[in-house]
């Protein structure tokens, strides 16, 4: 069977005539600063590191959310309404497809990726970290364990990140949604 889904695998009470006229919630102020509290931690429950990431942030009082099989539930059912009213930072440890979608969606509320650290895990459990973002992130990534245990450390990093610092475009749109099959590809990220 060939349809759009298949294609993407390669690479993606009546109101009876009355004008409803109710605008959707006003978008968050485009240039207002992002508040300093992490609003959501998004994780992919299929991966131990992501579960550890979420557990640590939950322990620190951050509300966590599973990415789930359809990211629409998270964005349109949860994040969009709040972020349209007021922007607030979110962080995650997910697969690349989740970050890819959230990055595209975040443009509509004037938010962008502040940092990302790609983690490629081989079949022996060795992890290669590839950070992009502010100097503090690059430095911190150098200390991440090259095996299991990095998820919790990423959580600590995200909880301490200074959301007010000036950001550039380096971390934006680094890759598409696809991941190699011979390695587990995860990505830690923050959008603000």
């Amino acid at each position: 069977m060939v349809d759009r889904r298949s294609i993407l695998k390669l690479g993606a009470a009546g109101v009876a005539g009355a004008l409803v006229g109710m605008p959707l919630p006003v978008l968050g102020a485009a240039r207002a600063g992002v508040s300093g509290t992490l609003f959501r931690a998004v994780f992919d429950g299929r991966f131990e590191e992501a579960v550890a990431f979420a557990g640590e942030l939950r322990r620190r009082g951050v509300v966590t959310a599973s990415a789930g099989p359809d990211l629409a539930t998270l964005w349109y059912g949860d994040l969009q309404a709040r972020l349209r009213r007021e922007r607030a930072p979110i962080a995650g440890l997910t697969d690349r497809a989740t970050l890819f979608c959230l990055e595209e969606l975040a443009r509509s509320v004037g938010m962008r990726v502040a940092f990302r650290i790609d983690h490629l895990i081989d079949d022996r459990g060795r992890v290669e970290h590839d950070p992009v973002g502010p100097a503090a992130i690059l430095a911190a990534a150098r200390t991440l364990p090259a095996e299991s245990g990095f998820g919790r450390e990423i959580a600590v990093l995200a909880s301490r990140f200074d959301w007010r610092q000036r950001r550039d475009a380096a971390a934006l749109k680094r890759t598409g949604p696809f991941s190699p099959e011979n390695k587990t590809a995860l990505v830690s990220w923050a959008i603000a």
Partner: peptide, 13 residues
């Protein structure tokens, strides 16, 4: 839906 992106995370080609 956005499920298609979860389905394509792995690229068979």
């Amino acid at each position: 839906s956005l499920e298609v992106f979860a389905m394509v995370a792995r690229n068979p080609s």
